[in-house]
Design a binder for these strands. Structure first.
Lengths: 205, 205
DNA sequence: TACTATTTCTAATACAAGTTAGAATCTAAC
DNA sequence: GTTAGATTCTAACTTGTATTAGAAATAGTA
């Protein structure tokens, strides 16, 4: 209802996007409660009150940022997986899914880390508004590991639930440490390859 | 200067601990900026102003919570590792270190998730005050993997830096999802065993 | 140019929150 | 029981912030 459908190129939509971008950037750095609307307004060269012509409340702004974040991640993961051959095996699929998740998280880091870092803290209404999208994405990964297990691609005795949560942790945590290393650090692809390899094969010789 | 030394059993120290506990609980749930002092005061049946008899500012409260959090984690990890035989091999050591980190994170979850979840958001002064402790703990893990590599316990080509960051992610993320599952979910020990096994051997058959 | 709709600004409101000073209360020792 | 010290409360002050209503300005159109 909010991302794909409001893609007209009217001037109004354009400034709405600018405001949303500014909000994502501020929220990601200072948190929801730590960000005054004044900061967001200044980022787009506006006065605070003017924001209300485009958004009904600060909470709604956060809601849009969170929704867009989930959409971006889900779409990117789907894209990366879709690039593979139809008969791709589990290791390739996992590598692609991790790559997609990391690309989204680290490319659109304003949106995703605004969401990931402060998810626990914003109001219940914001949580509820993104619940179904997040459930969909979670289900994607559930199905993914279910199928892998059915194919015998996962070692017996491995708890799929903990597996998914641990992999999520490894990926999402990257949004915390990745940033100061714009050029010198590892590339997103190489991080994805590393993590996929680690989760598949471990670090032992 | 703050944790071990102020362990007298005077009434003053006791209420200071109560306030610190309340602050940790509130901060962990609502974040630093999202927590009014009123909430902390009510948790210990006080009026807001009375807190200032024990703490000079809200920021200092956060600082103490963060410091205690780092200490708790580091100490617990050391304890778990120290329980092992002197000649314990890398897999056992890693399992113990992960167990310690998770025990700390999930047992003292008020303190640790107050710190982990909002670390990026609180004022610079708070960051600086905990910098050295955090550096020490990070160095512990660096040394740990350096030695493992020297012993040939880590597969050639595995990036130790990414390895440490990814393992940290897997562990720290547990502070986000672990909580509603007090009894029905996996125990802390079993989570630690699972994660150690995953990072060591991967999930493939 | 004049008129209308869109967008932004100004200024005020209302309330919440961190902090402080001094009064009030409680505790414990003499 | 009185008194001194420790602890908490009351009541203010100041600042900041989300939100709103209406004025001003801008842009587009006939």
């Amino acid at each position: 209802m909010s991302i794909a459908s409001t893609r007209q190129n009217t001037k109004k939509d354009k400034t709405q996007q600018l405001i949303l971008d500014a909000a994502a950037k501020c929220f990601s750095k200072q948190g929801f409660h730590g960000t005054p609307l004044k900061d967001i307004a200044e980022t787009v060269n506006m006065k605070t009150g003017s924001l209300y012509y485009h958004f009904p409340s600060k909470e709604m702004l956060m809601q849009e940022v969170l929704n867009k974040s989930v959409q971006l991640i889900y779409n990117t993961v789907n894209d990366e997986v879709a690039k593979l051959e139809d008969n791709a095996a589990f290791p390739e699929l996992l590598r692609a899914a991790i790559r997609g998740h990391l690309i989204a998280i680290l490319t659109y880091s304003d949106y995703t880390s605004a969401s990931i870092r402060n998810y626990g803290q914003f109001p219940e209404a914001v949580h509820l508004a993104s619940q179904s999208s997040r459930d969909d994405y979670e289900q994607f990964w559930r199905d993914f590991f279910d199928q892998a297990e059915a194919e015998g691609a996962i070692r017996a005795g491995v708890d799929k639930h903990l597996l998914r949560l641990t992999i999520f942790g490894g990926m999402n945590w990257a949004s915390v440490w990745f940033e100061s290393k714009d050029t010198d650090g590892a590339s997103v692809e190489s991080i994805a390859d590393f993590q996929a390899d680690l989760f598949l094969n471990g670090c032992r010789p």
